[in-house]
Simulated scan of single mutants.
Amino acid sequence: MKPSRASSRPLPPYRAILAVDAKDFTKLPGSVHEDTSAAIKTVVGSALHDAGLEAEWSDPFFFGATGDGFAVGLPPRILPFLLDPFPALLQERLAQRRNERPGEAPLRLRVSLHVGPLPADPAASSSTGNGAARNDTHRLLDADVVKEALRDVSPEIALVAMIISDRVFDDVVRERYAGLHPDNFVPVTARVAGKGFDQPAWLHLPAQPGRPFPQGSPQSDELTHFAETVRPTPFLGTNYGQAAQINHGGMHQSGGTTR
């Protein structure tokens, strides 16, 4: 008797998945959680609007709130703009918010970006868009290395830390669709304890103008110390520390569809 095999099924369209959460959200008093959640959505929406992405933001493939942030499904054709200028605009909006609230701890956000096939039903925005690509986007957001990025850099300097998947880097950054140079990203290993997640990824701080180490300098196999010193300058520079050794394969084919 021949073993049964699963039938093929259509591959869902590719989606860009943007996920956001706030540093130290659970340390805030419960009385301000609702207001902070609303503020996160507002400030991200403002940055996307100024990046020319208001139409996509207002009509996503899916939107899932997480309390301290959200994940949203967007057309893959806008991935370059989610890398530049969106993170820099988000840093600016958060800095403006901080300046308007002297004495308060600044709102600081982690951002992850990935792309992959996901089913989505816009009519059921809050309960659709589930799959491995979305899971990996959340794992990137939860990786120790991006949490350390904001922990080890002055809150007066870095308000945004972005981590992107190897696939996004290869398809969008390395191929120069995004306005940022590849050296604006630091290669890291994204790990999440207890989840079996261990993948190459790329870290970017909008407050940091470029890769912090010279070409050819020694690199460790992970980001062991993100910032030993903070040197405020006209370009809000910081010292990342050492970064992971680049050990990436060939080009990926995203096969994305436009919306």
Rank of each mutant, 00 (worst) to 15 (best):
H49M: 07
Q242G: 10
D136M: 04
G179A: 14
P10T: 07
G30L: 09
P119N: 12
V188H: 04
P234Y: 07
M1F: 15
T229V: 02
F81N: 07
L236V: 10
I40K: 01
A55E: 12
Y240K: 12
A161K: 09
F226V: 09
E56G: 03
S126L: 07
P29T: 04
P209S: 06
L82Y: 08
V146N: 02
S126N: 04
A38S: 06
A243Q: 04
N130I: 06
Y14M: 11
Q253V: 01
F81P: 00
D198Q: 04
G45V: 11
L53D: 11
V20E: 06
H204F: 11
Q219D: 03
G250F: 06
R110I: 03
W202V: 02
N135V: 05
I164K: 09
A38N: 10
A132T: 12
F25Q: 06
R15E: 11
P200C: 08
P76M: 01
S37C: 11
P12R: 02
L79Y: 05
R108G: 00
N130G: 14
T257M: 13
P155G: 14
P206N: 02
F62G: 03
A207E: 10
L113V: 03
R110C: 00
L205E: 08
S8P: 12
D144I: 04
V44F: 03
E156Y: 14
L141F: 00
I40F: 01
A95N: 11
S127T: 14
P214G: 09
D59Y: 05
R174W: 06
S126E: 12
A71M: 09
A16M: 01
Y14L: 04
G67A: 04
Y177R: 13
L53T: 01
A158C: 14
V173I: 11
E228R: 09
T66M: 08
T137N: 00
P200D: 09
T233P: 02
R151W: 12
A201D: 00
G64Y: 00
P87L: 01
A19K: 08
S58C: 11
L48Q: 14
V115Q: 13
G116M: 06
D144G: 05
S31G: 15
Q242C: 10
A143H: 02
G64P: 01
H138Q: 15
R97H: 13
P85V: 13
T36E: 12
L18F: 12
L223M: 14
H181G: 12
P214Q: 05
K41I: 11
D198W: 04
P232D: 07
H181P: 01
G210Y: 15
V145P: 05
D24V: 03
L236H: 13
L150P: 06
G250I: 06
R108W: 04
R174M: 09
L94Q: 07
P60C: 09
M162Q: 09
P206M: 10
P12W: 13
P76Q: 04
L236Y: 08
G64Q: 15
H248K: 14
D35F: 10
K195I: 00
F70P: 04
T229W: 06
L140S: 10
K27F: 07
H138F: 10
A51P: 11
L79R: 03
N184I: 02
L74C: 08
G210V: 13
V168S: 00
T233C: 03
D24R: 05
T229H: 07
D183C: 14
V230P: 03
V32L: 02
P200M: 02
